[in-house]
């Protein structure tokens, strides 16, 4: 029966492999929080495919840098996961190590980058709207980080280091992309024939439109269409 070669040694895919207790409501919630980074990645993809904005690509670039950084730091610190998941992904490059938590780092980056966006890029928001946006991002990160601890994949310390590292990366990446846009690096990428072919644009930088602007444009074009000359 055993058709597998003896050296076949599968490991769980980091962000998706989640063991939980189906009879515990908090455990079920934690599963979805643990999968939130995956949902967010799906969101980026849709965002890019539908709007053809370069912004999601820029953000995902930062996430990829974060993932590589996470694997390297895990290798350096070599801190084991909590006892229950000690064998999680053992034999892989770095899954066996638990510090810093990749999920927490993902969310730390996510929160830091988008807090910068909410504070510096989206100019029309009112004070309370900015506050709510930032609060939502912070709470989301804390919840995801807690889910990792609750499901026994990480210790509190590993999660804290993950969030710190991610938040720093988000901040630095925001500054780096601001520079890149300023000196026209992003515009240069947009001028590539292959990028051009898919009509990819950067209206987040050049001509940011609020939902209200878009709605007004809609109203205007709608009313134009309804007037019929006899």
């Amino acid at each position: 029966m055993s058709a597998f070669p003896s050296d076949y040694n599968p490991i769980p895919f980091d962000h998706t492999y989640v063991l939980y207790d189906p009879n515990d409501i908090i455990s079920i919630l934690s599963v979805h929080l643990s999968l939130l980074p995956i949902y967010v990645m799906v969101f980026y993809t849709s965002w890019f495919l539908i709007t053809r904005e370069i912004e999601p690509v820029v953000v995902v670039g930062g996430h990829l840098v974060g993932e590589v950084l996470n694997k390297i730091v895990k290798r350096i610190i070599k801190q084991p996961r909590p006892d229950f998941h000690k064998e999680f992904g053992s034999g892989s490059f770095s899954l066996g190590y638990g510090m810093p938590s990749a999920h927490s780092q993902f969310m730390g980056y996510f929160a830091a980058y988008f807090i910068c966006i909410v504070l510096f890029k989206v100019k029309h928001l009112r004070r309370y709207q900015r506050f709510l946006g930032c609060a939502f991002l912070v709470v989301a990160s804390i919840l995801v980080a807690s889910s990792r601890v609750y499901l026994l994949y990480h210790t509190v310390q590993q999660v804290v280091v993950g969030v710190m590292l991610g938040a720093l990366l988000g901040l630095v990446y925001f500054i780096a992309t601001t520079f890149a846009r300023d000196i026209g690096l992003v515009d240069w990428v947009l001028s590539w024939p292959i990028v051009n072919y898919f009509y990819i644009k950067d209206s987040y930088f050049h001509c940011y439109q609020t939902f209200r602007d878009e709605y007004d444009t809609f109203l205007r074009s709608k009313s134009k269409g309804s007037i019929k000359k006899v």
Partner: peptide
Amino acid sequence: ETKLVFQVGLLLLPIFVVALRVLAILPSVG
């Protein structure tokens, strides 16, 4: 492990402060 948290924190704090300060004075951020 807790010591490790403080060590990493101390290591990252200066970079964090520098980044925040740059963000505050960078004209392109506005």
